[in-house]
Design a protein around this nucleic acid. Structure first.
Lengths: 137, 137
DNA sequence: ATATAATTCTATTATTTTAATAGACAATAG
DNA sequence: CTATTGTCTATTAAAATAATAGAATTATAT
């Protein structure tokens, strides 16, 4: 499952995509429209900003906006960024590969091989849909 | 991510598949060969037995074995059984559907639609591989 | 019958992760 | 200058996960 935080992050980004190139969107707007606790959203957006996915401006008339065009942000990117990996097990991650705890040696582990397939399929879907797809899917 | 418990469950079942039709396999064997804490495996196997996926016999020479032929147990079945659902968000589950917390109405939620696609792809892979596939993938 | 080897059950504890909140600080527009 | 808005660091709360403990039960061989 995606964590609540990841779900919030995705919906916040969708909201920003909907207002792309319309100037800074204040956090309060996002929180209200998307039904996200605003203090928590603060934490989430600050992280996304540190990661370079959103740009920000402080002060009056400030807010957040996408640092890239919606079409250049895929769901795969977002998930990798917010939870580290698309994979369902640590050893099946392409970019954040690590050994699973208490497992067999990787080359003997059948689960490993199954999960590599699953990860590839998931990547296929998630990397093919961007924030620009309003009615995607 | 799959939980550690789910990973243990899958590897335990794979072990049983490897010894299918060879009589009861004692828990201790599985725990040692698969590197799973034995008391924890106790809990896991009892659950799998209650779910009807493995059969058991107590007492001397007792142990666990698969209640079905390995070819009739898919990875999809196991994941659904141990974590309730294949889906990455509650609202995208086919059999355990529920509303995501703090979300928008489902028909407005774009994440919902994306995640339905992902679930279908995952199901495609996981339901097509069974415990009989030794070198699957 | 009895000893032994095994699972089962219920409860509890420990650990980790996730979610949420608080409050002081910094920047900007007007 | 002041109101508005994001930033940062820390803390707390809550939930999920992982692991353990120990008594009870069952089956088998002898």
């Amino acid at each position: 499952m995606l964590s609540q935080k990841t779900r919030y992050a995705i919906r916040a980004l969708q909201h920003l995509a909907d207002h792309y190139a319309q100037g800074p969107v204040p956090l309060t707007d996002i929180a209200e429209k998307q039904n996200i606790p605003s203090k928590f959203l603060t934490v989430i957006l600050s992280e996304l900003s540190r990661e370079g996915l959103v740009a920000t401006q402080r002060g009056r008339d400030g807010g957040y906006w996408l640092a890239l065009s919606p079409i250049d942000i895929s769901y795969g990117d977002i998930v990798r960024l917010t939870r580290g990996s698309l994979a369902l097990v640590p050893c099946a991650s392409r970019f954040a590969h690590e050994q699973c705890k208490n497992c067999l040696p990787e080359e003997e582990c059948r689960l490993h091989r199954v999960m590599l397939r699953v990860r590839d399929e998931m990547a296929g879907v998630l990397d093919s849909i961007s924030l620009a797809e309003q009615f995607a899917v």
